[in-house]
């Protein structure tokens, strides 16, 4: 699911029944989220979960939680963790997500070469890959587990990229690239 600045709702009370006014006085960076891509997953053992934020100061890739194939996926831990992080974002916004994540990659607009969206197709989930401008740096790839409308996501990505120095490329297929995966793991 892609959403825009979930925490910037005008409602004083969130869907979770939390009084948002209670957090009015907390410090904030005032970073504006332009596109939030929720519930990405990367890796294999363990799987990492990630939320992706195209924001006014650049791109934030917030990775959190470790999911093992048998006891993580098997018990749907990934869905619980994703839901919990969405709640954090809805109530507290990007700042708190970045604090809760255990690894955050930030890329400035000039540091991104292109964003590649694979549509997934019949057998695979859509995949979002961010390639840095410096090819010696690692790229970041995430399967998207809550986004089935890739046309809408592609349009949102192009809108975000408009006026920025990186390209958005959309391809069909599930984008399985084993050599690239291995290179990414060891980079």
């Amino acid at each position: 699911m892609a959403s825009e600045a979930g925490a910037e709702t005008d409602a004083a009370e969130s869907d979770l029944g939390v009084d948002l006014d209670e957090f009015e006085d907390l410090p904030t960076t005032d970073i504006e989220v332009e596109l939030h891509v929720h519930f990405g997953m990367a890796g294999s053992f363990p799987l990492r979960m990630a939320d992706i934020f195209f924001a006014s100061d650049g791109l934030h890739l917030a990775e959190y939680s470790y999911i093992t194939p048998m006891f993580g996926l098997g018990t749907k831990k990934h869905r619980r963790e994703a839901s919990a992080m969405q709640d954090v974002y809805d109530v507290h916004g990007l700042d708190e997500v970045l604090l809760q994540a255990d690894t955050v990659y930030w890329l400035g607009d000039e540091g991104i070469d292109r964003v590649l969206l694979h549509r997934g197709g019949r057998f695979g989930r859509p995949k979002l890959t961010v390639y840095p401008a410096d090819e010696t740096e690692r790229s970041h790839a995430y399967r998207l587990h809550e986004n089935d409308d890739t046309d809408a996501l592609a349009a949102e990505l192009r809108e975000v990229a408009d006026g920025r120095p990186f390209d958005v490329v959309v391809k069909s297929g599930w984008g399985f690239a084993p050599r690239e995966n291995v290179a990414r793991f060891f980079s």
């Binding site: 650049g58 255990d102 690894t103 990659y105 930030w106 400035g108």
Partner: peptide
Amino acid sequence: RKDDLHRAEITQH
């Protein structure tokens, strides 16, 4: 300054 950076990686294991 973020304007002077291409990338930042923050880990808090």
